[in-house]
């Protein structure tokens, strides 16, 4: 019998976004695209034939990252603090900036991985984050750090 490790500090996050909902947001509020997506994300997605699907998948990924961090969009955080960029092989990679990057460093983030999928109707993202909390520091996130956040 094999007993899986009970002490591994990992946490998953998943989110699903209706493509039409994201399309309506960026169409009705054109400036929202700069609030939500970095220049690299915009360049990648808007160059695709089904650009709104790709944008929706990246928005889902940002939400999934925050869920894997045990928080929502907290104080001083920006949606562009989480960036999803495909590498040369097409694999999506997570890049962190600003307050989200500081939170990750403070809590001892070791690695994060993301997987995306989308259809014409729905986009989904799954994230796994692995933590190695610093000695004497806060544990890996279970329910946020005590700050309020937008889910």
């Amino acid at each position: 019998m094999w007993a899986p490790a009970a002490s591994a500090n990992f946490r998953v996050g998943v989110d699903i976004v209706p493509v039409e909902r994201l399309a309506r947001l960026v169409t009705e509020h054109p400036t929202s695209i700069d609030t939500l997506f970095t220049r690299r994300e915009q360049a990648y997605c808007l160059g695709k034939r089904r650009g709104h699907e790709h944008l929706a998948a990246r928005f889902a990924a940002k939400e999934a990252v925050l869920k894997a961090f045990g928080t929502g969009l907290g104080q001083r955080m920006r949606w562009t603090d989480v960036e999803i960029v495909n590498d040369v092989l097409g694999r999506p990679r997570v890049f962190l900036d600003g307050e989200v990057a500081r939170l990750a460093q403070r809590r001892g983030l070791v690695a994060v991985d993301v997987s995306l999928s989308h259809t014409a109707e729905l986009a989904i993202a799954q994230v796994v984050a692995i933590w190695d909390p610093p000695a004497g520091g806060p544990d890996a996130p279970t329910s946020g750090e005590g700050g309020a956040s937008v889910p």
Binding site: G70, G74, T142, G144, E145, G146
Partner: peptide, 9 residues
């Protein structure tokens, strides 16, 4: 954050 919530969130 530390004053707003406790260690258990």
């Amino acid at each position: 954050d530390e004053e707003f919530g406790d260690a258990n969130g």
